[in-house]
Structures are given as C-alpha cells and as structure tokens.
Simulated assay, not measured.
Amino acid sequence: MNNLDIAVTTPENKTNLPVKWLMTVLIIAITVLGLVRIADEKAHTMVDDSIVAAGASFAIARTLDAVISVVKSTELSVGVASIDIGEMLNPVSDLINKFTWVMTLAVGSLALQKILLMMMASKLANILLILASFALLMTMWIRGTKQYRKIAQSAFKVIVLIRFAVVLSLGLNIMVDKLFIDEQIQRQSSQIEGVTALVKGVQDGDAELAVKAEQGFVDAMKASWENATNKLKVETDKVAYMQQSIEDSIISFMELMALFLLKTILLPIGFLLMLKQLVFSKITL
C-alpha cells in the first residue's frame, strides 16, 4: 500500500487511539473557534471600553490642570498672612504632566492591541489556522507522514499562539480589571474630581457679616470681633482641608499611573508570556 493509506491497527495504535481522537476533536474545536470570531468581537469591545476609561481619566486630569492654571496667581488670606495657591498646586501640576505621558503610553498600547486583534482575526490568519490544523491532522492519521509530526505540531502551535494570544490575554486581563483595577481607577478618579471642584471654588470669598447701623458701639465691636474670629477659623480650616486634598490627589495620580501601566502594558505582556509558555510546553499532539 502507498504512503497515503491509513495506518494499520497495532496494539500500540489501539492504546493511543482514544488520545488521538481527543486531540483531533480539540484541534477541530480550536479551528472552529477561530472561524466563528465571537471571542474576537468580545475582545474588541473590551479594548474599546478600556480606551474610553483611559480617555475619561485623561480628561479629568486635563480639567484639573486647566483650573490650576487659572488660580495659580490667587492668594488665600489667613488672618494677617496669605498663602500662595500656586505654590501649593505646583506639585500636582508637575505630576499631571507625567500622568499625561503615562496616559499617552497607555492609550497607545490599547490602540496597538486593537490593531493586533484586527490582524489576528483576518481571513489570512484563519486560512493559516485551517492549513496548520489540516497538516497536523494528516500527520496524526495518515500512514507515512509521522516523520513530519513535529514540524506540523510546531507550526500549529505558532499559528494558534498568533491567532488567539491577544484575545486570551485580554480575556484574562478583563477578569483582573473587574475584580480589582476598574474599581480602584474609579475611586481615584473621583478623588481627583473632588480636588478639581475644590480648586474651582478657591476664589469664592466668604460673605461678610453685616453690622446694622442702629447697633451700639459695643455691640458693633463685638460683632466685628466675632466676624473676624469666625472668618479666621473658616480660612484656617479651608487651607488645612485644601492641603490634605492636594496631598490625596498626588497619591491618587500616582496610583492611577500605576494602575493604567499595570492594566494596559504589564498584565497583557505577562499573560502573553504565560500563554506562550503554555502553548510551547511539552504537550504533544
């Protein structure tokens, strides 16, 4: 019989037959999954949502930066002293510049992932997956092709990694996002929005207490003293609260930078390396 005949049944073949059928079903299932493209569409939605979230955080930071630029020359009076708001906000302004760079890197990474998804879900990628699957199945079932099994197996693994790596890494990444990262990003963004609102109102003065004309001299002096005392307390509390809020916003920006670097760069790369290690492990087909 020629080399294309199905291999004859031997005791060894009988032992391996269930495994061969199992691997055959697995190979066909992987191929069908690549052709259906349901996972690809879900991955595209994930990337779009991440880009929207990154854009929202970037807009919050730019809004705060614009407000800081307006109030930099404003001074707060605390009794006989005054505090330069610009000096208080300079660290935040410098950090926003670094945050802008990190967000540009994060959005660029997400855009690259979207492009890779489009490439790996293309017709060419699916055709290569079909050819690699067919070649591997031939070496598994057709007599005389066993010597090409390792080559076909390596080619199939490479094509599978190319076709599904980004999709699977994004799927794992979104699980981590839902469990931890997205909630933290929302919390820190809300903190920065609160600081923005606080800085916007920094130029609003406190209403002076009116002293009626018919009051006596002693009553008028008492009212003026109470007014001055209350105003000093209000201004002191305002400055203390603003200083604490600014310190909190610095921490929020630093945590946001770390979260977006983790979400858009470090985790995807880590999952890709993990999948590569898994695909090229010593599992034989």
Rank of each mutant, 00 (worst) to 15 (best):
K72F: 05
W21G: 14
P268C: 05
L259P: 02
Q188D: 15
V166S: 12
A210Q: 13
S154M: 12
A121W: 05
L259H: 01
L117S: 00
T24Y: 12
D182G: 00
A54R: 02
L275T: 06
Q203F: 08
S82A: 11
T15E: 12
L112T: 06
I130Q: 12
I130R: 07
F99W: 03
Q113A: 12
S169N: 07
N13D: 13
T104S: 13
A132H: 07
E208D: 07
V234G: 11
K233H: 06
F260G: 00
A258P: 06
M274D: 01
A258Q: 08
V80Y: 05
V47N: 00
N227H: 10
T63Q: 00
L161S: 14
V211M: 09
L124V: 10
I27C: 15
S154L: 13
P91I: 05
L124Q: 15
D206T: 01
W225N: 09
K42Y: 05
A135Y: 09
L95K: 14
A135V: 01
S93F: 01
V71M: 04
F99Q: 01
F156A: 03
L105C: 13
Q188R: 12
A66Q: 15
I30A: 10
A29T: 05
V19C: 07
L275P: 07
T31A: 14
M103Q: 05
L168Q: 02
A132I: 08
A155I: 01
V158L: 15
R37M: 02
K114P: 02
I283T: 08
A152N: 02
S224M: 06
M140S: 14
G194D: 09
L64M: 03
D49A: 03
V36P: 00
G171A: 09
L26S: 06
L209Y: 09
N2S: 10
K157P: 00
K263F: 02
D48A: 09
I250R: 05
S122Y: 08
L272Q: 15
S189G: 04
T284C: 04
Q113M: 15
N227C: 10
V25S: 13
V32T: 03
Q277P: 09
A240S: 12
G171D: 06
R163I: 07
S73D: 15
V8R: 13
A7C: 14
L232H: 11
K157T: 02
G270P: 05
A121K: 01
Y241A: 09
P268A: 06
L285C: 06
E226I: 04
L22Q: 07
V8A: 15
I250E: 07
A258N: 14
